[in-house]
Simulated scan of single mutants.
Amino acid sequence: MTGAPAGARPRAGEDGFEIPGRGRGLLDVLQRRYLLRLLVRKELRVRYQGSALGLLWSYVKPAVQFCVFFFALGVFLKVGQDVENFAVYLFAGIVVINYFSETFGNATRAVVGNAPLVKKIYLPRELFPVASAWVAAVHFLPQFVVLLIGTLIAGWRPTLGQLAGGALGFAIIVVLAVGLGLLFGAINVLYRDFENIVDLLLLVVTWTSPVLYTWVHVRDAIRRAELPDWLLTVYQLNPVTSAVELFHYGFWYGATTKPYELPPNLLWNGLLSLGIAVAVLVLGQFTFRRLEGRFAQEL
């Protein structure tokens, strides 16, 4: 080696090789985009192998979900009777929650589900949760197209600020879902109970986010119960809540003909929620890197 004293032992990395099992986390995923594409293709191929509908399930499942919620809540319980274009409002929330649920749930199972690869070769383990986010994005895209068509039919005329709000909402949900996927995916290798815990969390998130109702219902319920007003602030600082509200602002509010009361400090809460999501991503990456050395042994 040039530059090294005779007989000196080269330090790690000086010989041009990397120490196996050590990497730079998510930065390695950016450098190995080809592997990421292969994993995404593999996940899609395995998921729809032998399926007659294939990617059409990206339309069928949210359509059934939408119909159940719309008729159960909007028609029978009349939850959306005061909400103009309630169908657009409902579907805008559904596509966000579906992306979050699919990314978080599949990322939690990603390392365990790819156990043969983890045990046989070294590659950045973060590729598996990130691939789950990309697979979810493939399913999100057709749902988003349907949402755009519906909101255009409803008379959608967005402002630049509303479009920025929708983009911010999606950024929050992506960062949060990947961060939680890294965190729970790493712990799930050691304790498989976390798969069931995540399923319960996703059920809670669906019903506690303003997808099936508006934030006004939450405010009025807090006031009727004479609870402190700061509970509403805590509710709105939930990153999932902020993401859903921003998506409503971006893709529903511009299709309304009468003014609606927006959540207070919507943009500010969105930025704070993005900060919380980034903190979760950092925590998830830290936990993942601390535990990944045990993955092959535990699997």
Rank of each mutant, 00 (worst) to 15 (best):
V46N: 01
R47M: 06
R47C: 02
G50Q: 07
G50W: 07
A52M: 14
A52Y: 14
L53I: 09
L53K: 01
G54M: 06
L55V: 10
L55S: 03
L55I: 13
L55G: 01
L56Q: 04
A63D: 09
V68Q: 04
F69L: 13
F69T: 00
V75I: 14
V75N: 04
F76M: 15
Q81R: 15
Q81P: 03
D82G: 13
N85W: 12
F86P: 07
A87Q: 14
Y89S: 02
L90E: 03
A92N: 03
V96P: 00
F100I: 07
S101M: 11
S101G: 08
S101Q: 14
S101Y: 05
E102V: 10
E102C: 04
T103M: 08
R109V: 05
V112I: 15
V112C: 05
V112D: 10
V112A: 15
G113I: 09
G113E: 10
G113V: 09
N114H: 14
N114T: 09
A115F: 10
P116L: 13
P116S: 12
V118H: 04
K119I: 09
K119R: 15
K120M: 14
K120N: 15
I121C: 03
Y122N: 10
P124F: 09
E126K: 01
L127P: 07
F128R: 02
F128N: 02
A131N: 09
A131P: 09
A131L: 10
S132P: 01
S132Y: 00
A133L: 10
A133M: 12
A136L: 10
V138L: 09
F140T: 11
L141H: 00
Q143I: 11
T151C: 12
T151F: 08
I153K: 09
I153F: 14
A154K: 05
W156L: 12
W156V: 05
W156K: 02
